[in-house]
C-alpha cells in the first residue's frame, strides 16, 4: 500500500486540490443552464437574453458601442475611477493603518470615524458627497475611495498588531531604531494582511462603482448598465455585468498571484 497523507477532518486538504475542477464544472453548468432556459423559450429574451445574444452584443459594444462610447471607452472610464481611488486608498490607508497599529492615540482618533462610516451603504452618503464635491469626476473617485479605504486601513492595522511581540523585542536587542523596526519588521510582518485588505478593498471599489456612476456620468460600465436599463436593453445590462465581474475577478486573481510572490511565508509559521 502506498502512503497517503492523513486526511484533515474538515477535508481542507481534499478541497484545496479539487476546488479548481469543481469551480470549472460549476461555471460550465451555469452557462449550460443559461443556454437551456433561453433556447427552450422558458424565459423571454427581454428578461434573459441567450448566451449567443450576449456574445454578439459584446462584439457590437466593442465596435459600435452604446450610449456614445465603445465598450473599451466605458471600461477605461470605470477602470480609471476604480484604480485612482484604489491608488489613493493605498497611499493613505496603509500609512494610517500602520500608524493606528502603533499609536493608541491614532487608533483612538480614527477608530470611531472609520467604524461609523464603514457599515454605511455608499448610496446613503452619496448625496452628501455630491453636495460637497459636485457631480464631476472627483465625487465619483471619492465615493469609491471611501469604500476602499476602510477595509485597507483596518486590515493594515490588524496586520501591524499581529506581528509577534518576540520579533519586535528581538529587533530591539539587535539595535534597531524605531524607524528600522517599522521598515524591517512591522511592514513585512503586516504585509499578508495588507494584501488581504487590498483584495477586499478593491472588491468594495467595484461594488461602489455603479453607485458612483449613477449621477451625471456620460461613460463608464456602471453608467452603461444603468442607461441600458432605461431602454430595456437587457443584453447590454447583462454584458456590462459580465464585464465588470470579469475585470474584478481577473484583478482578484492577480492579487492572489502577487500574494504568493510577495508573502510566500503566509501560513507557514
Amino acid at each position: 500500500m502506498t502512503g497517503q497523507p492523513v486526511k484533515d477532518p474538515l477535508f481542507r486538504h481534499y478541497l484545496a486540490r479539487k476546488t479548481l475542477l469543481i469551480s470549472l464544472v460549476t461555471s460550465l453548468l451555469l452557462v449550460v443552464l443559461w443556454w437551456l432556459v433561453t433556447a427552450m423559450g422558458w424565459v423571454k429574451p427581454l428578461f434573459l437574453p441567450s448566451p449567443g445574444q450576449v456574445l454578439s452584443k459584446l462584439g457590437e459594444l466593442f465596435s459600435t458601442g452604446f450610449a456614445n462610447a465603445t465598450l473599451w471607452e466605458h471600461a477605461r472610464a470605470s477602470l480609471f475611477r476604480v484604480f485612482s481611488a484604489f491608488a489613493l486608498a493605498c497611499l493613505t490607508a496603509i500609512p494610517l493603518g500602520i500608524f493606528m497599529g502603533i499609536h493608541d492615540l491614532a487608533k483612538g482618533i480614527l477608530d470611531p470615524v472609520i467604524e461609523f462610516y464603514r457599515p454605511l451603504p455608499p448610496l446613503a452618503y452619496l448625496p452628501l458627497i455630491i453636495i460637497w464635491l459636485g457631480i464631476g469626476e472627483t465625487a465619483k473617485v471619492v465615493l469609491i475611495y471611501l469604500a476602499v479605504f476602510a477595509p485597507v486601513c483596518l486590515s493594515t492595522r490588524a496586520g501591524v498588531r499581529s506581528v509577534a511581540r518576540e520579533k519586535i523585542l528581538a529587533a530591539a536587542t539587535l539595535g534597531a531604531s524605531r524607524a528600522q523596526i517599522i521598515r524591517h519588521i512591522v511592514i513585512p510582518g503586516a504585509l499578508p494582511e495588507i494584501l488581504t485588505g487590498l483584495r477586499v478593498g478593491i472588491g468594495f471599489g467595484w461594488t461602489t462603482l455603479v453607485a458612483a456612476e449613477m449621477v451625471a456620468a456620460t461613460s463608464g460600465l456602471g453608467f452603461m448598465v444603468l442607461n441600458a436599463k432605461d431602454f430595456l436593453a437587457t443584453d447590454v445590462v447583462l454584458t456590462g455585468i459580465l464585464v465588470i465581474g470579469g475585470i474584478a475577478y481577473g484583478f482578484d486573481m492577480f492579487m492572489r498571484l502577487l500574494e504568493r510572490w510577495l508573502v510566500p511565508w503566509k501560513g507557514q509559521e
Binding site: A164, E166, K167, L169, A170, T173, L174, H184, I185, P188, G189, L191, V263, W265, Q268, E269
Partner: peptide, 12 residues
C-alpha cells in the same frame, strides 16, 4: 543579545 523560544525569526 536574546534568543527566544519561538516566533522571533523574520520569515521574510
Amino acid at each position: 543579545g536574546a534568543v527566544f523560544q519561538k516566533n522571533a525569526l523574520m520569515p521574510w
